[in-house]
Amino acid sequence: MKTMGGRQFWGDIQFFQGWKIQQHVISQHYRLLDPKDQRHASGSLEHCRDRLAEMKAARQIPPMQGKAVILIHGIIRSSKSFVKMKESCEQKGWLVVPFDYPSTRRTIPENANFLGKVIQSLEGIDEIDLVVHSMGGLVVRSWLAQQDVVDPRVKRMVMLGVPNRGADMADRFRSNLLFKAIFGPAGQQLVTEANSDFISNLPTPPFEFGIVAGGRNTLKGYNPLIRGDDDGTVAVSSTRLPGAADFILIPILHSFMMNDPETIAHTLRFLETGVFRESGKPQPIPVPQAATVP
């Protein structure tokens, strides 16, 4: 049966060559989807895994290998928001993992649990890179907080408009009933560091990462409700996480970053070389030095 592929009520827990096993956040039951979002099984996890094993054998699906790129969407969105990015990564010969999670129905740490299960399921993969948009970056950082040892296969990550220091808009609307209903528990965790210690306690990635921010490169951005330059949703200052290997600012709105040709070109270059610009010159964000006691 054709499905919508999982939006706000399903979380991925296993991936294999485009096939997914997902869990429903309310009923807790599972289903198996093929790369075209056709459902092939529903019920227990064991049943879905058995059915996947049958499909592997019947269709002679080869094992996974090489490099995988996990695409992680932001709040309210789905992996379908990465259409052009997905196509561009596939043209490089990389296995693309379009990760879906119930962004408005579970907290950020709960959604990080789904990500952890998907990463564990990538058997045969030698290298894992991440491309994350908006809250997707916080899901990754929350996943890192849950790990005693980070999977050594994770090599690089590109953050697109990630509110690493929280979002002014969440501060402004966090008490609004409509905001609470639409954005759910994760929306309450998007507030700035001044209003919550959740984001400030998230770890800095121990692997190489670069940051793409949208903005006008002026004192005021696209949204007058946000302090300083911004992409219409996230302040440029909030995206700047110390420790980044490279940073680049481009004139693009938050919602269009993932499929913008310039953003895609920068992303692919970073995943291949560790820098955004063709010149090969990075603009890292240094980690502040701890003050020394005289």
Rank of each mutant, 00 (worst) to 15 (best):
K20N: 01
K20P: 04
Q22K: 08
Q22S: 00
Q22F: 05
H24N: 12
V25H: 03
V25M: 04
V25W: 02
V25Q: 03
I26S: 09
I26K: 11
I26T: 09
I26A: 07
I26Q: 09
S27L: 03
Q28N: 10
Q28M: 07
H29E: 05
Y30V: 00
R31L: 09
R31S: 03
R31I: 07
R31D: 07
L32C: 09
L32F: 04
L32W: 07
L32A: 02
L33R: 00
D34E: 06
K36W: 13
K36L: 11
K36P: 01
K36G: 07
Q38W: 14
Q38F: 12
Q38V: 12
Q38D: 14
Q38R: 14
R39T: 08
H40S: 04
H40D: 04
H40T: 05
A41I: 06
S42F: 08
S42G: 12
G43W: 00
S44T: 14
H47N: 02
H47G: 03
C48E: 01
R49M: 10
D50K: 12
D50N: 13
D50Y: 13
D50A: 11
R51T: 14
R51E: 13
R51I: 02
R51Y: 06
A53S: 14
E54A: 07
M55S: 00
M55R: 08
A57C: 12
A58E: 14
Q60K: 15
Q60G: 08
I61G: 11
I61T: 12
I61Y: 10
P62C: 11
P63F: 01
P63R: 12
M64P: 05
Q65F: 13
Q65K: 15
Q65N: 15
Q65E: 13
Q65C: 09
Q65R: 15
K67C: 15
K67W: 15
K67G: 14
A68Q: 06
A68I: 06
V69W: 13
